[in-house]
Nucleic acid binder design. Structure first.
Lengths: 165, 165
DNA sequence: GCGTTTTATCTTGACGTCGAGATACTCTAG
DNA sequence: CTAGAGTATCTCGACGTCAAGATAAAACGC
């Protein structure tokens, strides 16, 4: 059974027999799978009237635990976007009533972004749905294989996580 | 040894003990790894004065084999972008002298995009460099683990590849 | 042949992100 | 106490992408 990446690799082997394209077997599949996952995520969130970027921000607040407050600075570390992007995202989430901007009582430069009850409901429903979809995607894999692949992926990601704490 | 995803999962387990978050062990790591790979790719291409999107197009032409000509339609299937995006990309690549637009002799609606010698040199050098970097990333994995994970990822991607041929 | 449908490409406007810079406040050394 | 360095957030302009629509040519059915 072949997939698109097999096709890709075969073409490169034909055109550049001098190169060792073995790394693509793993890494091209990671990239492609991630792209597909993004689409699947978007679809899952559609049901709940959320965009992926909205979920990312709301989820960061939700996992922080009650009272669901984080500074924009913390949020951008969690979501890996720039500060300009986060300002824009918080603006739009606030306009939709999913978060509120509060002054930070301990630092007058600072702001705290807090999940509203509506925001919490949205993200909780979306998260449950997302996990259901993801579970379906992994359905074909044995428990054992899932654990194995999770371990290997952790190895591969670690160097990047270390780069910047 | 923990990674960022372990931290993420732990937070969700604390906040939503009712949910089974096991799928994140695999899929969140796939997404995060892919994001890191994108950055690493961009860096590798920087050396060769290429952007990632430029490489994507040039690589599709390169893999097609001599005479390195493809229609914009084929290109957008290979690179998974929309037609408007491809028009824009070809415009800019042509302006940089890396590709040329030729009329399709068999269809007057059509256009063929062809790699120039400069474009071919660029993509060949970038590809070799990319593979070197990727090999380094996989360095910690045994041959056996790489094959195992490639097989499992192929399983996971297949449903998406089938969706649209 | 002639009108309809399909195919191929390009055009346009809206959108989200980035990165550099601006602004306002806090912290620290002396 | 204050000058200077550091930090937190926001502003702004440029960029690449997308989706929908426009245009033109080809293929099909009758």
């Amino acid at each position: 059974m072949e997939d698109e990446v097999d096709r890709l690799i075969e073409a490169w082997r034909r055109e550049r027999p001098d190169l060792d394209v073995a790394p693509m077997e793993v890494l091209s599949r990671v990239s492609r799978l991630a792209r597909h996952l993004d689409r699947a995520r978007s679809q899952a969130f559609d049901t709940h009237g959320l965009e992926s970027w909205e979920f990312d921000v709301l989820a960061a607040l939700r996992r922080a635990g009650a009272p669901y407050k984080l500074s924009p600075g913390k949020l951008l570390k969690e979501t890996l976007v720039t500060s300009g992007t986060m300002t824009n995202r918080v603006d739009r989430l606030a306009a939709r009533g999913l978060v509120e901007r509060l002054p930070d009582p301990t630092d007058r430069r600072g702001v705290l972004v807090q999940l509203t009850p509506a925001g919490r409901d949205s993200v909780d429903a979306a998260m449950a749905d997302l996990l259901t979809h993801e579970r379906a995607l992994l359905g074909s894999l044995s428990e054992r294989d899932q654990q194995k692949i999770a371990r290997v992926l952790r190895e591969l990601v670690r160097p990047f996580d270390l780069e910047k704490g």
